[in-house]
């Protein structure tokens, strides 16, 4: 396997992935970051075989329930349209499902936000559903609860970090 190490003199680049966005990179100096994820979910995919990785930061489970918004214009806002869009874009960059490392963070809820109002939980179900169609499974996840999370992916090493304020960073 090709060794992808950050050169010591390289300037590290940080690229934010806002909600309803995805970023894909093969630049080993780049780190993708989805800041303060709430009920939405940040999904980091990395293929060490070809050094390509990306983060999708979607917000809602189902594009058919978004009255007043055209999902064709914002496919990355929803799990049902965003996950296929993201995964296919990575396939086009040479990603192979058998080599993928997959990390997911988010899906939080407001305290006592249960039943039909628990969008975080629905997001998680929709994500798993979307990934299953490509035989992709989540290797590491931090889902639910009432904390917001920051998820990052270092393209140079393929490692992901999940950060919750006041807690040690979890590196996977």
């Amino acid at each position: 396997m090709e060794q992808r190490q950050l050169k010591s003199n390289a300037v590290a680049m940080m690229t934010a992935v806002n909600f309803s966005e995805m970023k894909i990179s093969r630049n080993p100096a780049e780190t993708l970051v989805a800041f303060s994820i709430g009920s939405g979910i940040g999904v980091a995919l990395f293929d060490p075989g070809c050094g390509v990785g990306g983060i999708l930061n979607f917000m809602l489970p189902d594009s058919t329930r978004a009255a007043g918004v055209d999902p064709a214009k914002v496919p990355l806002m929803f799990a049902d349209t965003g996950v296929p869009f993201f995964v296919q874009a990575l396939f086009e960059q040479g990603m192979r499902p058998d080599r993928v490392k997959l990390v997911a963070a988010g899906g939080a809820h407001i305290m006592d936000q249960t039943g039909m109002f628990n969008i975080g939980q629905e997001n998680y179900a929709a994500l798993k559903n979307g990934l299953a169609k490509y035989d992709l499974t989540i290797q590491h996840e931090d889902i639910g609860g009432t904390s917001s999370r920051t998820l990052s992916l270092e393209i140079g090493t393929g490692s992901s970090c999940i950060k919750i304020f006041g807690q040690p960073e979890v590196k996977v």
């Binding site: 939080a108 407001i110 936000q113 919750i164």
Partner: peptide
Amino acid sequence: GLSYRFYS
């Protein structure tokens, strides 16, 4: 974070 009460 989201640590506030939800009133359905």
